[in-house]
Amino acid sequence: MNTPNFLAAASAGFAATLTQAADAPAVSRLVAEIQSIDDKVRGPAWQNAGPVGAPAVKPLAGLLTHADFEIARSAKRALYQIVRHAGRPGSEKAAGAVERELLAALAADRTAAAKRDLLWMLSEIGGSGAVSPIAALLTDVELREDARCVLQRIPGSKPIGALKKALAKAPADFQAALADALRARGQKVRGHPSLKLAPTKQTSVKAEA
């Protein structure tokens, strides 16, 4: 590494350390306020969570399964604020940082409901680096449908490759969904006719004589 690059890297690292140090109180405050039982504290906290950014993802993800459903809901909304703030044009670094934290949160031991939320957040901000961890969930019966939808939304060729690979190995009851995702992405898929018009749900209500 030449000197100017080294200095630039060192400077960036120092700035990142400073930012993280400066962020720590903001993260602690946000996480504390999200756990308030008073929505007048909790509400503004999640509504203004966007700029707190990536460092808040892990602790907020931990609150997605909080026993108080309003606190869990507020944590989810705070995470979405962070995702959408980081996803603004021209903030690719912030988006990348949030994506990495979301992937780490997805890899942790969590409920299927919490993982579903994280997956859909990744659908808005995830790039090619998110594809493999998401594709790994295509074999999880509880999460595969959400993972399929998320891969359908993430642009680029890598999600298409992952969907094709999954289709080749998928159980019969998931193949049509994968084929549909590929068709939605403009791919030609042989076989696997669409089931969208096939009725399946009967009512017990009878026509009157």
């Binding site: 399929r148 998320v150 642009p155 049509a176 549909d180 089931l195």
Partner: peptide, 20 residues
């Protein structure tokens, strides 16, 4: 135009088989 995230939100992949 010019906003990748908002562009993604122009659609919402649907749960199979309730798809377009």
């Amino acid at each position: 135009v010019g906003d990748e995230q908002a562009r993604r939100l122009m659609s919402r992949p649907q749960r199979y088989p309730y798809v377009l």
